[in-house]
Design a protein around this nucleic acid. Structure first.
Lengths: 157, 157
DNA sequence: AGGGCTGCGAGACTGGTTCTCATCTAGACT
DNA sequence: AGTCTAGATGAGAACCAGTCTCGCAGCCCT
């Protein structure tokens, strides 16, 4: 499905992620499967989080329809293996995005007016979270910051 | 379920909150109503966030059953008036807790194993979030930090 | 006291997510 | 290559938090 992109440069993080993901799945004793591959390939090509519905739709549009159940199954599996991060910003809809192996990640701004979601990142915020995590009796291994407000479009109206 | 704790000292912030809430509702032009009062009274007595289901159940157990729709209506109204904060920590279930007028608030630790939710607070984390908020093109007016991990009970097993 | 408008509650409905189960297939074993 | 079996898949039913509808009740103003 990808006739070009054959330079095996490890410059592109999404390729790294896809290979790392498939390898991890294999190591964990999972067989190969069409649905799983399709979901992994799609996630590798995204910059920000997608909903399960969006994943399902895009795969269908791409000519590789996958059962609803399989989409959720794969996402749950990948989340357990920490290959994907599940994000819930509200409205009762979960979103999923690939979890970078290098720990690099971002958080999300949610416009409570139009529902838009934008990523942002901030090193000192990460630092603060890390410090908090250390002093708690909790074994923190994931965190999620969600800022609610009005996006630049909605605030001026 | 709490037979004591009925001293009417104004030292207790929950009483302040309850009065402030009822006054704000009145100022906003709302009439009094049994369901609303029941929900407000229940929320005032809580230390941490409750789900709509829990609110419904406790009111029913307390002999003041309230319609599902009313619970959600009241919570939505209170959230709009910033008297209550709506929190979504995952599992697609929203939780609600009173929003302190003095701005004092906490965030949440979620145990992904047993589902327990614990509050925590950290001034320097608040500071970091405030700084980030300022430099974004977003008009941030609410934030939410969720740490996922294993609680002290679950980590040792 | 009357009357209109707000608040309330029961139940139908929606939509995201999970469950069930029959079928298919990857990969190991002969 | 053929067989076998557990894991993978997909269609649809089931589930459940949350929303909507609508008729009734009660608050409050005149």
């Amino acid at each position: 499905m990808e006739p070009h992109a054959h330079s095996h440069s490890h410059l592109h993080p999404s390729l790294d992620w896809q290979q790392h993901t498939l390898a991890t799945l294999s190591d964990a004793g999972h067989r190969k499967g069409g649905a799983r591959n399709a979901v992994v390939e799609l996630l590798a090509a995204q910059d920000c989080a997608l909903t399960a519905q969006e994943i399902d739709d895009r795969l269908r549009d791409g000519g590789r329809a996958v059962g609803r159940a399989s989409v959720y199954r794969v996402l749950e599996l990948l989340t357990e293996l920490r290959l994907v991060q599940k994000i819930e910003v509200g409205q009762g809809i979960a979103r999923y995005e690939r979890h970078q192996p290098d720990g690099d990640h971002h958080h999300h701004l949610v416009c409570d007016n139009c529902g838009t979601i934008e990523p942002f990142e901030d090193p000192s915020l990460e630092e603060a979270i890390e410090q908090v995590s250390r002093r708690l009796s909790f074994a923190v291994d994931e965190h999620d910051v969600v800022l609610h407000g009005a996006c630049s479009d909605c605030r001026e109206q």
